[in-house]
Structures are given as C-alpha cells and as structure tokens.
Design a binder for these strands. Structure first.
Lengths: 337, 337
DNA sequence: CTCCCAACGTAAAACGTTTCATTAGGTTGA
DNA sequence: TCAACCTAATGAAACGTTTTACGTTGGGAG
C-alpha cells in the first residue's frame, strides 16, 4: 500500500485506453466520447489517481501559484490583505504561497529565489529592501511582479497602494485640528517606504502651522513590543518634555504605545496625549482606549493586486500601471478633543 | 529577452561539460574537481541559471514543501503558530505553504487536494471537518500528516496539542475562585474540538460546585465580530438574567464580547461581569480591559509539529505520537476580584 | 459501392532534472 | 611492466504529464 501513487499510465492501462485519452478526459472533456469519459473517470476514482502537479508544471512551464511576500504576517493588516489575495486567486484557479520577510532582506531574497525556482506564475511583494532590479530580472524570465502597499520608484513595475502621504496628512490635520502642537511620530525603520511617506504627510501639515513641532522617534520594527518600548521611553520623560500627541506608523505600534501609557499611568489618553494609528485593524477599536486610525482597504488591495498580476501574466497586459487607493480617517476615543 | 530561462543543458554546453556534471556541481560538490566546479559556477552566474524545481521534484517524487492548514489566519494565534512552523521548516531546508480553511470543510478539502497534487512532503493541519480517514489515505501515498492544536480521535495520527480540557478547567477554577457562579461559555461552532474541550473543562469544574451554573452560547465562527454580536445579545438581557462571568472559546471572541459590553455601557468589566479568553494573543493585554487568558505556546506548537512531521517523512518514524503541552492562566484586569 | 469527413483515439516527443552504470585517464604497488 | 584501483566525468534512462501529428473507425452523400 505504500507503493507509489497511481499514474495516468496505470489509469490508462486499466481503463483500456491510451494515456493521451486519460489526459483529454481530464483537460478537454469535449474531445472525448461520454462513454469513455465515464469509464476513465470510474477507474480514476477506483485507483484514487491524483494528478502529479510537478509533471504538469514541468510540461506547462509555469505553475498555478502566485507568491506573496509580506513584511509581517503577524500584522492583521497583512493577514487581511493575504486573504483578499487568496480569494481573488482562487476565483481564477490559482493559489497563493505566502512568505513572511519579517522586515529582513535575506529572508525577502530567499523567498524571491524560492519563487523563481518554483516558476511561480507571478509575485506580489511588499518590498523591504531594494528589489526593483531583481523584479525586472524576474519579469525578463516570465515572472511578473506587482508591488503591494507601495508604489514603484522607477514606475516600470505595477503597483497597488494607498496614498500614504495623504494618510499622514489626514492624521496630521486631525491632530492639529484638535489642538495638538507637539506631535511625536513613532515609526519603525525609516527605510520602509510606507513609514517615510506617512511621516512626510505629517510634516507637510506641520509646515503649514509654524507652531506645530514634529519629533521623530524610530524603532527597529513595527511591532506591538517595539511600540511598547518606545512608549515607555516617552512616558519616562519629564512632563514639560513630552509631546501632546503621537502618530504611530501602524496600529501595532500605536497599541504598544498605548499599552505603555496605560500601564505606567503617568499619561492619560487622550487628555494628556492623543494617539493616532494606521491600518485600522480589527483590534484598534477594541484597544484600551479605542484607537483613532487611518484605514486602508486591506482585502481590496490584495484582491486588486492579484487581478493586475494575472492580467500581466495571462493576458499580456504591459506592466507599469499604478493603482492608488485613498485612505480614510476613523476617529475614536484616543484622539477625542 | 523573454526567451525561456537557461536550463542545465545550456549551462553544460557553455561550460563544455555534461549535464550530469552540472547537476553534481549543484548537489554533490565533493564529487567534482574544484576546477570544473569553478568553471560551471561561473557559467551559472553568467547565464543566471535557476534550477527548475518542478523537474527536480518530478524526479525526486516529492517536494521540499510542507502544507499547513489552519482554521483562520486572521487569528494571531495561528499566525504565530505559522511563524513557528516556518522557522522550524527553514532550518531543515523546507518551506511552508500556508492554507486558510476559514472553518469551512470545502476549503479544507480543497487544500488537501492541492497538497496531494503537489506531492507535499507532509501536511500539518488544524482540522475542522472529519479528516482522519482522508489523512490516512494521504499517508498511504507517502504524505504524512500531523494534527496541530488538536489530538487524534483514533490515535493513529501524530499530533501536537495543548490540553484544552485542562485549559477550560483553569479558566473555570479561576472564575469560581473569584466568586462567580453564573458562567456563560461563549463559543463558536461546537463541532470544533478545541471548543468542545474547553467547554468540557469548564463543566467539570462546575460539577464540583453545585451552586455554579454554566450556560452555553454558540456562534457561527470564532471571530471578533461574532463575539461582538453575542456580547450585544448578552447585554440586551434584563439585569437579573445576566451571567456574572464569560469564558470565551478564544481571545478574538473575548475581545468582541468585551467591545460590546464597553460600547453599550450597561455592564462593567470585571465588576458586573468577568471575562476570560483563550490563546493569550498579543492584543489580549492591550484590550479595553486587559484580558485574562489561557496561554498556549503557539510558536512552539508550530515548531514541534514540523519536527515531528519531518521525523516521519525523512527518518521513517512511526506515526501516532501525541505531544501535549500544558496551558497556563494569565490573570489580568478583566477578571480581577 | 466508393469516397470523404467527423469523431475519436493513439503513439511519441517534449519538459529539465537526478541518478546510475559506464568509461577514460591517471596513480599506485608489486 | 602490468594489474588493480581510484577519481572525474559522461551518457542515457527515468520521473508523469501535455500536446501534436497521425491513425482508425463508422456513416452519410454521391
């Protein structure tokens, strides 16, 4: 029973037809009489035959899977995005292989290597390092790529993103409107483009009000834990030295900062200090103090990215299209006046 | 430039060696003189050759990937578990293909089909439907499986799990100890084994105290949204009719219930009603009211499952081993006396 | 009764690796 | 000097599909 699984050859023999006919039954049922089709299907069932995808792929030249590389699966924003991508892919008969770069260039490169070895139909990526030349090489070999949650710097790779600068402005305008003047931007590494852009939007707003000051506080990753660490640093300062608002680069950090403030008890949110996050993950509204956040349509981004990718892979659409969604500010208690 | 990517044949020709030698350079470098190795590697680099995994797999009979099917990627517990699995897999040169059954039998079956077509090295699964016979069939075909976060009912499939009955008891004992007597169990579909077991633990405790009553409230899924819906139902009851504690089947539901209570404002946590969750996800301690929860070692479970799977796949270890971790109660404000 | 056309099947070639049996050439020991 | 041995490299078979060009029917039209 541990013998190798049944192949088309076995099926063909047993059904008394040729291998080609078995293949036809499976792939172009119209080319085959319904009598033989029935017989073959019966044998397939009897033998429990399952098509060997490696062989199919080898022959076809590329697989029915799409690679998706995200910065951090732990972040619900990316889970949501992945689910959107998966739904879109499944509808077209593809599946999604999910990779977690964890904000590390080696891991990102590792996944790109893997996906190239596997001859994926295409790659969706939220880039961490500088991957555009690598992506161009992939395209030359017939593996198109679409940037996700980030635009192309050169413009010749397609992308689906949200206008992060606008999102940063939304947050900034809101904080200024509720009377805050000393705003701390709590972000991860500034080499992440999204982080840069959100900061930029905030700074644009600050420049229009000469009494508004922006302080930049960076951490090593965009996680709850890191947010907590930075929040503790902030809370440890003397009262005169503290900002009156925090704009965090994403909700995880915002939640971490919030946890620090609440735990230490020295600063009250939103009276002493307001907090605005980014992504509007499900947990934001259920945080200690429900969190104001800039919402991105995560699932839709994933879905759209898959559609664009498949248009390039299957229908030969040229790359370089940029789709940009507009973010939306959701105001909750953490920044009420 | 859009031509098909370089193959070993191309490399061999250009380097003036045979195909077999190229293969040896890649797979058993010790079998080849360092001079030829150098030359071949140079050509590989020059041509940008990347091994075609489909061909390799076809020849090898099975792939270097492990399939992982979870109930819900949106649940941080499973993200964490997936990361643990991924880390473990990478260390042994494998990669993880992540599937999301979303608590739907069709999707679960779809992934099993896919993984069988792809001749995965093995499958890790948090089962939703009844899959044990299916898993046995997979094993017969050389694809071992390990149950994750759940034990085998028949005992002939390996598993890595947490003692959910004990976890339920922990929660129950704690709630009784802080004086609660009317406990509502808020769970998803009862056909999910983990949910059953956690409830069972609670009931065991209730039986030891004849003044303790358990009420069972079930929803359609284990999500924040569903938790919120059930929480609203609870809050809408007359004051005499309400429980004085909620034990939720996981943290997502607990957070949803909590959100409902806080939003409606009719019940104060923990004074009017205490809440205990399950999983201790990162967001639990940062919830509106920091959440008491039963902690499971998510990442370790994933890692251990991979190790067990590879032991069966590569080293021929017999299936049927059951590893059970012990959960731990983390008490926070949501159930302070 | 012949001829041709559909409809259905078939056989064989390809896809790109890995592996195994084999050969070529060189070194060693007696 | 020759046999025995070792190392490096080779060539061909095999993995399981898909696909293409090619047979073989049977039946209807002329």
């Amino acid at each position: 029973m541990k013998g190798s699984p049944a192949s088309m050859r076995d099926v063909a023999e047993r059904a008394g037809v040729s291998i080609g006919t078995v293949s036809n039954v499976l792939n172009r049922p119209d080319k085959v009489s319904s009598a033989t089709a029935r017989k073959v299907l019966a044998v397939i069932d009897e033998l429990g035959f399952v098509r060997n995808d490696a062989a199919r792929q080898l022959r076809a030249g590329s697989s029915r899977a799409i690679g998706l590389i995200v910065l951090d699966v732990r972040n619900p924003f990316f889970s949501e995005l992945a689910i959107g991508a998966e739904d879109g892919a499944r509808e077209s008969g593809y599946s999604i292989i999910l990779g977690n770069s964890d904000e590390k260039t080696e891991r990102e490169a590792g996944y790109l290597d893997l996906f190239e070895e596997q001859r994926m139909r295409g790659v969706l990526i939220t880039p961490f390092g500088d991957v555009e030349t690598r992506l161009r090489r992939l395209r030359e070999r017939g593996i198109p790529a679409v940037l996700v949650d980030r635009t192309s710097s050169s413009g010749d790779v397609s992308s689906v993103s949200v206008d992060d600068v606008a999102g940063g402005r939304l947050a900034g305008q809101h904080l200024v409107a509720i009377g805050r003047r000393r705003i701390a931007f709590v972000g991860g590494p500034l080499n992440i483009r999204q982080v840069q852009d959100r900061l930029l939007g905030l700074q644009q707003v600050a420049q229009q009000h000469d009494d508004v000051r922006v302080e930049i506080i960076t951490g090593s990753s965009l996680s709850i834990l890191e947010g907590r660490r930075l929040g503790e640093q902030l809370a440890a300062r003397g009262p005169g030295d503290r900002p009156d608002a925090v704009f965090a680069a994403n909700d995880l950090m915002a939640i971490g900062v919030l946890q620090a403030f609440v735990m230490l008890g020295s600063m009250h949110v939103p009276d002493d200090i307001a907090i605005v996050g980014y992504d509007d993950i499900d947990f934001a509204r259920g945080a200690v103090v429900p969190l104001t956040s800039v919402r991105q349509p995560a699932s839709l981004i994933g879905r759209t990215a898959v559609e664009m990718l498949l248009a390039e892979a299957d229908d030969g659409v040229e790359p370089g299209r940029q789709v940009v969604f507009t973010p939306e500010l959701i105001v909750r208690a953490s920044s009420r006046r």
